[in-house]
Simulated assay, not measured.
Amino acid sequence: MCRSIKTLFNFEPPATELEIRAASLQFVRKLSGFSVPSKANEAAFAQAVEAVTATATALLAELVTTAGPRNREEEADKARARSAARFSA
Score class of each variant (00 low, 15 high):
C2T: 08
C2E: 07
S4Y: 05
S4K: 05
I5N: 01
I5M: 07
K6D: 05
K6I: 02
T7C: 10
T7A: 12
F9Q: 03
F9G: 02
F9H: 01
N10D: 08
N10R: 04
N10K: 00
F11T: 03
F11I: 02
E12D: 15
E12I: 04
P13K: 03
P14D: 00
P14V: 02
P14K: 01
A15P: 02
A15L: 03
A15I: 00
T16F: 00
T16C: 06
E17N: 11
L18S: 14
L18A: 11
L18K: 15
L18V: 09
E19G: 07
E19P: 04
I20F: 02
A22E: 08
A23I: 01
A23E: 00
S24M: 06
L25G: 10
L25K: 15
Q26I: 09
V28R: 00
V28K: 00
R29C: 08
K30S: 15
L31K: 11
L31H: 07
S32G: 03
G33M: 10
F34N: 12
S35A: 11
V36I: 14
P37L: 01
K39G: 08
K39E: 09
K39N: 13
A40K: 15
A40I: 07
N41C: 06
A43Y: 07
A44V: 05
A44F: 08
A44L: 14
A44I: 03
F45I: 00
A46W: 05
A46L: 11
A46R: 14
A46T: 14
Q47H: 11
A48Q: 07
A48M: 05
A48G: 05
A48W: 04
V49L: 02
V49W: 01
V49I: 12
E50Y: 09
A51C: 06
A51E: 09
A51P: 05
V52W: 04
A54E: 05
A54Q: 11
T55A: 13
T57P: 06
T57Y: 03
A58R: 14
A58Y: 05
A58K: 13
L59E: 07
L59C: 08
L60R: 01
A61T: 05
A61H: 06
E62Q: 14
E62C: 10
L63F: 14
L63D: 09
L63A: 13
L63S: 09
V64M: 10
T65Q: 05
T66F: 07
T66Q: 12
A67P: 04
A67G: 11
G68K: 12
N71A: 10
N71Q: 08
R72A: 01
R72V: 00
E74V: 15
E74N: 13
E74I: 15
A76H: 12
D77M: 11
K78V: 13
R80Q: 12
R82S: 12
R82F: 12
A85W: 03
R86T: 10
R86V: 04
F87H: 13
F87P: 03
F87T: 09
S88C: 10
